[in-house]
Computed example of a mutant assay.
Amino acid sequence: MRMTWADFWTLMDTLDGEAGEVSCRRLTEKLGRRPVADIIGFAERHAEALYRLDQEKFGSLPVADLTDRDGSPFPQSADHFLYTRCAVVAAGRAVWEDVFFDVDRFAPFTSTRYDGEWLLYVPDQAYELATGREWDRSTRYCFETFSNKDGWPHLQS
Rank of each mutant, 00 (worst) to 15 (best):
T4F: 11
G41N: 08
E44W: 00
R69Q: 15
E97R: 14
D136K: 15
V99S: 08
R85Y: 03
F81I: 00
C24Q: 06
Y141D: 11
L50C: 08
M1G: 15
F100S: 07
K57S: 13
Q55F: 08
D16L: 13
D115H: 07
V95K: 15
Y121C: 04
C142Q: 10
R2A: 12
L155Q: 12
G41R: 04
E48Q: 13
R113H: 13
T131S: 08
G71L: 09
R34K: 13
F101L: 12
L129P: 05
M3C: 05
R85P: 09
T14V: 07
L61P: 01
S138R: 15
E97I: 02
S60W: 06
E18C: 02
K30E: 13
R2Y: 04
P153N: 08
G20A: 04
L155V: 07
D150Q: 14
G71M: 07
E117F: 11
D136R: 14
G17Q: 11
Y51E: 04
E18K: 09
T110C: 08
G151S: 07
A47V: 03
W135I: 04
Q76F: 02
D124I: 02
P108E: 09
D150T: 13
P62I: 01
T139I: 03
L27R: 02
A37H: 09
T131H: 02
F143S: 13
T110I: 01
T84M: 04
E48F: 09
V103G: 06
D115K: 09
R26K: 14
P35V: 02
W9R: 11
